[in-house]
């Protein structure tokens, strides 16, 4: 039935020697990482009781009216930091993205420089930016806002640029053919076409900003994070639990809101 000269592939391909070495190395690296992370079976076994102890001491969360009011205002400040930083970041990202997008207004060399810089900005964690700005402008929400802003530029600058590179080139060519300048073509054809993607990316940036802004307080950059730190430092676990629950509620709420806004603004009019 089968032509004897036909090669039938085996069910399981035998790995080559190099692939085998690769797998072995991966296993060794993973085990070594567990060691580095201080993985200890003993701690896993003994921690459930201690975790239960924490839960017992944290519940019920602190729901006193005065505490709730104080934390509520701290949460408002947190959202203000997130919104102000994200809006400034999104606005700054537009010119940055124009320089980062290939074949748009800037040459290859500028594209690469801007993209590398944006990569660096993203590589530095938001909490590290907050520490830097606390040193630069002092403790308080302004440092937090600047940290959120630069974090947003790192994110939106890159993705706005990708969005603009991805749009249909037809309208841009049609306007170039009318004799329009490059800047006119970008403003009239490229940016409007990329607008739905910009909106979507900006909403993600806002979600990310809200999540970041809740912990910036840990390093004194404003917002509700400081209450979390104080709660744990003073063993006031019920208040700390209230903060954690508030953060969870607000972050989930913002994600819902932004998902709703995304479909509302761009969902039906792609």
């Amino acid at each position: 039935m089968t032509d004897l000269n036909t090669h039938v592939p085996s069910r399981i391909e035998r790995p080559s020697a190099i692939a085998f070495l690769g797998y072995a190395a991966a296993v060794v690296i993973i085990l070594w990482s567990f060691a580095g992370a201080g993985f200890s079976v003993e701690k896993v076994v003994t921690s459930p009781p201690r975790f239960a102890d924490f839960i017992e001491r944290a519940f019920p969360p602190n729901l006193e009216a005065r505490t709730l009011e104080r934390l509520g205002w701290k949460m408002v400040e947190t959202l203000q930091i997130a919104l102000a930083g994200a809006v400034l970041g999104v606005i700054l990202s537009v010119p940055v993205a124009l320089l980062a997008a290939r074949n748009l207004v800037a040459g290859k060399w500028i594209n690469q420089t801007v993209r590398t810089t944006l990569g660096f900005i993203r590589a530095v964690p938001d909490i590290a930016w907050a520490l830097i700005f606390v040193v630069a402008v002092g403790l308080g929400p302004f440092a937090g806002m600047l940290a959120i802003m630069i974090d947003t530029v790192g994110f939106c600058g890159r993705f706005f640029a990708d969005d603009m590179e991805g749009v249909d080139k037809g309208p841009a060519e049609a306007l170039t053919a009318t004799g329009a300048r490059k800047l006119d073509v970008v403003a009239c054809a490229t940016v409007p076409a990329a607008m739905p993607a910009f909106v979507s990316t900006s909403l993600f940036a806002l979600e990310k900003a809200v999540r970041s802004s809740t912990i910036l307080g840990l390093v004194g950059a404003g917002g509700i994070g400081i209450e979390l730190k104080v709660g744990f430092d003073l063993f006031d676990y019920p208040s700390a639990m209230t903060v954690i629950l508030m953060i969870a509620v607000v972050v989930i709420g913002i994600e819902q809101l932004s998902g709703w806004a995304r479909t509302k603004i761009i969902g039906e009019q792609r």
């Binding site: 037809g170 309208p171 060519e173 049609a174 306007l175 170039t176 053919a177 009318t178 004799g179 329009a180 300048r181 009239c188 054809a189 409007p192 076409a193 607008m195 009019q269």
Partner: peptide, 22 residues
């Protein structure tokens, strides 16, 4: 000079290439 020349030409293409959303 290229822009001045193109300004005297009208181009209509297969895909129309209007700017959507405007």
């Amino acid at each position: 000079a290229l822009r001045a020349m193109r300004g005297q030409i009208g181009l209509v293409s297969q895909k129309h290439n209007l700017v959507p959303r405007l």
